[in-house]
Design a binder for these strands. Sequence first.
DNA 1: GCTTACTGATTGCGATTAGCAACCAGAGTG
DNA 2: CACTCTGGTTGCTAATCGCAATCAGTAAGC
Lengths: 172, 172
Amino acid sequence: MKVEEAGRSGCPINLTLEVLGDRWSLILIRDIMFGNRRHFRELLSLSDEGIASNILADRLKRLMERGLLTRRDDPTHKQKAIYSLAEPAIQLVPLLAHMAAWGRRHMPVTEELSIRAELLEDGGPPMWEAFMDELRHLHLDAPKPARSVFQELRQAYEAVLAKKAVAAGAAR
Amino acid sequence: MKVEEAGRSGCPINLTLEVLGDRWSLILIRDIMFGNRRHFRELLSLSDEGIASNILADRLKRLMERGLLTRRDDPTHKQKAIYSLAEPAIQLVPLLAHMAAWGRRHMPVTEELSIRAELLEDGGPPMWEAFMDELRHLHLDAPKPARSVFQELRQAYEAVLAKKAVAAGAAR
DNA sequence: GCTTACTGATTGCGATTAGCAACCAGAGTG
DNA sequence: CACTCTGGTTGCTAATCGCAATCAGTAAGC
């Protein structure tokens, strides 16, 4: 039982790490943000990294307590919940873009999983802002913006998959 | 004994998290980077967050294995080691700047510990680049750049401390 | 109305990790 | 010689991780 949780220090980097400094929180936010996974089962079974259900439940709870996620009932199913990004989580877009850019440069990433990172890096802050506006539409009740970064990312991802399929076919 | 460590997925965000996704690695890099702490004891006893010596030893080893830090002997003391940032770690500057900016906006930070974050945020990419050049001088063998972001940050930090001391004196 | 599948979780349990405290040997200092 | 400082290591306990099994409530098919 946690008695208090005042944090180890008032340093902004430390405090950010106390919220996001584990191996799953940002993975979850990534999946909700870029994969638009809004239900428990989607996050559980579509997870590339294979999160366990108890860890998922725990992280969702923690992220809600810290104000990064919100949860509401799904009207189509009385037991279904919809998880949404709160504004602080939406503002992680630049951070995630930088993280992805760093990983792409220094880690053995796969092409299809890093094409979106490349796009986001090239797009820079204007693209991030557009994406954040779109997320505010999808997760908060903001109006729908003209540009859909979400669609741009998806199309680029599918183009790579298609290209790889062609290459695999030619090699046969 | 770890048999293999191929990673959970080839996603750049995931791979970055596998290296930096814990509560101490980035704290260490922050202290080496912004505090210029280069020895084990400095990192151990000047740590605001109070890292334990075994955790420190483990993280230093891990970060060296992953290519983020290097270690060399200190010529002034045969038992002393000097830890330096490698290029991949230096390239974390923008990431840390964004992390600090996010923390400053969404977490209960203290003024004196966030003034440097504010400066780095306002300075933007040009300041980050200048800082990275300076780090390459301090940690690799690059030439000394004209601008010293390090000094700018330190002066701002000390100015806040001085201001707080005056305020405390006036309140007495 | 009965079965079957799916919903967001919870529980049990072994393995790993975190973190505190004590300790260590080698090196320099007075 | 005694003392301090160096980068660590060891032992121990508590917390956390992560897999598998399980759960009760809901909806849909028949």
